[in-house]
C-alpha cells in the first residue's frame, strides 16, 4: 500500500507547479515549474514500483526534453511575456467548460470501476523491463529506434537554412553598402563634441546639430536612452527643454505591443 502522506506530497509537487501553465506569464517560469512536475512524476513512478521508469523520467524529461524547451526559449527570446488577456471570444469559457466537463466525466468513469489492486507490486527493475522490451516488444523497440533517427534528421532538415546564393566577401558587401549611399567612414561615437559624454547622448556634427545614429539602437530598444534625455532635448530643440520638466526623467511605460511579445 502507498502511504497517503507520500501520495499527497506527490500530488502537491505535481499539481501546484502544473498550475503555472495556466497562470504564469513568463515562459521560463513555466518551464522550470514543469521540471518540478517531472520530478514529482518520477517520484510517483518509483512509488508505483517502476524505478527504471522513474530514472528514465528524470533523465529524459528533466534532463533532455525540458532542457530542449529552455534552449528554444533562449533562441526565440527569453524575455517573451504573454498577456493572459483572452483574444478569442468565448475561448476561455469553452476551455473551462470543456476541461471541467472532461474531468468530471473521467472521474465519474474511473469511480465506477472497482479494481482490487494486486497484492504485491510489480518489479519495475531495469532487468525485468529489459527482458520484456527485448523479447516481446523487440520489434517495437526497433521501430522506435527508426522513429528517433527520423525525428533527429527531420529536426535537422527543418532548422537548416539552405544557402541559396554564394557567400559574398567582405569587399563585395562594403562596395554594395557604399553604392547604396552608406557613410563610408565610421559613425561618430556618442558624446563627441557634445556637452555630456554619456552613451545615450548623440554626437554633434560640425554645425552643432546632433547625429542621431551615433547612439546605439540597443539603447533605444531597451528604453535606456533617458539618462541624457535632458541634454539631448536641449541640443535638438531648445524649446522642448521648457516643455519637459526636469523631473520628467523617468522610465517610459512599455507599450502594450511590446508586452504581448
Amino acid at each position: 500500500m502507498i502511504s497517503p502522506v507520500l501520495f499527497w506530497s506527490i500530488a502537491a509537487l505535481t499539481v501546484i507547479p502544473a498550475l503555472s501553465l495556466l497562470f504564469a506569464r513568463k515562459a521560463v517560469h513555466i518551464a522550470v515549474s514543469i521540471i518540478g512536475v517531472m520530478i514529482g512524476l518520477a517520484v510517483a513512478y518509483v512509488t508505483l514500483g517502476a524505478p527504471f521508469l522513474g530514472v528514465v523520467q528524470i533523465v529524459v524529461y528533466t534532463g533532455a526534453v525540458m532542457m530542449l524547451f529552455l534552449f528554444v526559449l533562449m533562441l526565440v527570446g527569453v524575455d517573451q511575456r504573454e498577456s493572459l488577456k483572452e483574444t478569442l471570444t468565448g475561448q476561455r469559457w469553452i476551455a473551462f467548460v470543456g476541461a471541467a466537463g472532461l474531468a468530471i466525466l473521467l472521474i465519474a468513469a474511473i469511480s465506477e470501476v472497482a479494481f482490487e489492486p494486486a497484492e504485491e507490486g510489480v518489479s519495475g527493475e531495469p532487468d525485468a523491463v529489459a527482458m520484456l522490451l527485448f523479447t516481446d516488444y523487440v520489434v517495437v523497440i526497433e521501430i522506435l529506434g527508426a522513429l528517433l533517427i527520423t525525428a533527429a534528421v527531420g529536426a535537422l532538415v527543418m532548422t537548416h537554412t539552405p544557402r541559396l546564393r554564394p557567400r559574398r566577401t567582405q569587399q563585395e558587401l562594403q562596395r554594395e553598402r557604399v553604392l547604396a549611399g552608406a557613410n563610408p567612414v565610421n559613425k561618430p561615437m556618442p558624446g563627441v563634441y557634445a556637452r555630456h559624454n554619456a552613451l545615450d547622448v548623440p554626437a554633434l556634427d560640425p554645425e552643432g546639430k546632433p547625429i542621431d545614429e551615433s547612439v546605439s539602437r540597443v539603447l533605444e530598444a531597451r528604453h535606456q536612452t533617458t539618462e541624457g534625455f535632458e541634454w539631448r532635448a536641449a541640443l535638438t530643440d531648445p524649446s522642448k527643454k521648457k516643455a519637459r520638466p526636469a523631473s520628467g526623467i523617468s522610465k517610459p511605460e512599455p507599450t502594450d505591443k511590446e508586452d504581448e511579445r
Binding site: 495556466l22 518551464a31 476551455a95
Partner: peptide, 22 residues
Amino acid sequence: YLAVVLFVIGAAAVLLRRNAIV
C-alpha cells in the same frame, strides 16, 4: 485521479495559452 487532474490542466493550457512553447 491525479493523472486526470494533470491531464485536464495540460489540456486547458493548450486551449488558453497563445505562446506556442507553453
